[in-house]
Design a protein around this nucleic acid. Structure first.
Lengths: 188, 188
DNA sequence: CGACATATTGAGATCCATCAACCAATGTGG
DNA sequence: CCACATTGGTTGATGGATCTCAATATGTCG
């Protein structure tokens, strides 16, 4: 599944320069400070954010608690999928966990570009497929693994997360309390 | 999110008849008996199955136990998403829970058709987006809801599941043991 | 009717949440 | 530069949710 990212990368490289120029034309770079919110609850996610540097996360509130749903690092694409796809208000926040630089593309500009440059539709499809597979993996972890197994999984497969992200956020990402995560780490 | 299915339906209606004819040309109807396997572990999911009648499910084995990941009813599209997308062997089974009739489309035929009929790419994208949102919902349920809440959720939003599917399968779909589900039902 | 799948119920063990106290590092205002 | 607040993390005690194992119905179908 990770190799699908490479397939997407090579597909992008194969795209004609006219299409790529259009893609650049509708994108713009921007910097955010640690703690800044790129998207808030009840807003429509009208932009996609390609992380060029730094760390960010997506989360929502459940009974007043922040539930982290995704962590973003360099080259990750940050969007609130349902809000972006439906262009309807969603419940997710996107927050910069460090100072970050992003490349922003507006939803509508991308939709317009797709009608003129059909290769962008295929690109959009590949990105949606990748996200679908990624969420399927997350669901599998919640469906069949214990908290300890889920923690060991990111510890081995995504050690950069554990190094760079506060345990409070990792705990909510794993769907467990901070205390339980602390005890899991002590037990290992 | 449910309304997205309507959007997909109306998009299909808006497609030119030449494209639709091609779609029909590469599809064929087939019947399966209750208990038949449409896809097995370690096989490549080379076909998509549009359920015309009956009930089916997708599941995988974890420590020898069957974990149901999706239930299909009329008009649902059954595929093992990752295996289908990557065209690689996957771990999921697809099984007929009753006698069923399906409309089968081969992966490669659909890929070929997409190159000639670009509207099919957009259709493919919409289907992938819908699946992504659906899996996101499932993940949300596992992330923040208790077993009882998850059961009540399908009881109210998808009562046809509870009526038609054995509790053993519903329990694995909810990620709980059959005994716990039985007790939840007794408690309500 | 017999056999096999499906569902219920009980008892004990395990995992994890919650509440609460405490600790360490960092930063900020006076 | 110190006092104190804030953030991030640890540890203990207790209760609730859920699992597992086991025994017992209940159905269903050849």
């Amino acid at each position: 599944m990770t190799s699908y990212l490479e397939k997407i990368a090579s597909y992008i490289k194969s795209i004609d320069s006219e299409t790529l120029t259009e893609l650049q034309r509708i994108s713009s770079e921007k910097k955010y400070k640690k703690g800044d919110l790129l998207l808030r609850q009840n807003e429509i996610c009208e932009k996609s954010y390609l992380l060029l540097s730094g760390i960010a996360r997506k989360y929502y509130l459940n009974d007043g608690k922040e539930i982290t749903t995704e962590l973003y690092f360099e080259n990750d694409l940050a969007v609130s999928f349902e809000s972006y796809t439906l262009q309807q208000p969603g419940r997710e926040f996107i927050e910069a966990l460090t100072d970050i630089t992003v490349s922003i593309t507006h939803y509508q500009a991308f939709q317009d570009a797709k009608t003129k440059y059909p290769k962008l539709v295929t690109l959009d499809l590949m990105l949606a497929e990748y996200y679908g597979m990624w969420v399927e993996h997350r669901l599998f972890q919640f469906h069949t693994m214990t908290a300890t197994e889920r923690y060991l999984d990111i510890l081995t497969k995504s050690p950069h997360i554990v190094q760079a992200v506060p345990l409070t956020i990792i705990a909510s990402y794993l769907g467990i309390s901070l205390e339980t995560l602390s005890r899991i780490r002590a037990r290992i």
